[in-house]
Design a protein around this nucleic acid. Structure first.
Length: 216
DNA sequence: AATTACACCAACCGCTTCAAG
DNA sequence: GCTTGAAGCGGTTGGTGTAAT
């Protein structure tokens, strides 16, 4: 592609980053730290928008980002977290040390989805941002269908009891479903959680990864 | 050797959320 | 309460490498 074609309307370059651009961005962050991404093009002269700079840092340049193939343990963790959380890539990535949401998402869509997940991809798939559904497997490993999935927002806020749609699952049914997925996730006995527990996500956020023991 | 098909992954886009003024 | 900009998120696109034909 010609360089001129890479220039967007506002003079910002698009496409792959060069080593020189990486160096400029890394040096800026080393000196000024993260944040104020929109300042970077003005200060450094980089012909990239702030959003692009942020993404390049978070997904590639940051020292905390782990490069290379996913290990079997990482894959296993992603599969199980995806069963529990659905397409909440940032939440999943937050529990896979060194991996970004983009890495996890790409890895899922290109490798794991074929083996373990819904075969539908791209436009065929129902947008998770619309439904926020979490997919749960039954005892045989079957992924429950659309009509059997639970509203993730209700799960998150524990609002099901008050605002339950006629089409949604009852608390009893939901607890039963949770039992299925909970069999593989050993939560300490002092945590009494179910799918409608307020703060489940916060629990997962705060709980040390090493203490989340997954059964094989 | 040339072409085609496919897999992978970096990056973009549009939308939402949040905080500051 | 409203506006605005920054940051974050998830879906999607497009470039590149490679295997298959």
């Amino acid at each position: 592609m010609q360089q001129e074609e890479m220039e967007a309307e506002h003079g910002n370059k698009k496409g792959l980053w060069t080593k020189e651009e990486d160096m400029i961005l890394s040096e800026y962050i080393r000196v000024h730290g993260r944040g104020q991404w929109n300042r970077i093009p003005r200060v450094t002269g980089l012909k990239r928008c702030g959003k692009s700079c942020r993404l390049r840092w978070l997904n590639y340049l940051s020292p905390s980002v782990k490069h290379g193939d996913f290990s079997q343990e990482e894959e296993d963790l992603i599969i199980r977290l995806h069963n529990l959380l659905g397409n909440r890539w940032s939440l999943i990535a937050g529990r896979v040390p060194g991996r970004t949401d983009n890495q996890v998402k790409n890895h899922w869509n290109t490798r794991l989805c074929k083996k373990f997940g819904n075969k539908k991809r791209k436009r065929e798939a129902v947008s998770s941002s619309e439904t926020h559904s979490t997919h749960i497997e039954d005892h045989s490993g079957r992924v429950l269908g659309e009509s059997e999935t639970l509203s993730f927002e209700n799960l998150r806020h524990g609002e099901m009891a008050e605002n339950q749609d006629p089409g949604e699952k009852s608390i009893e049914e939901a607890d039963s479903l949770y039992q299925n997925c909970n069999e593989s996730l050993l939560i300490p006995t002092d945590y009494h959680l179910n799918l409608f527990s307020p703060g489940l996500i916060e629990f997962l956020d705060g709980y040390p990864l090493d203490d989340l023991i997954w059964q094989n």
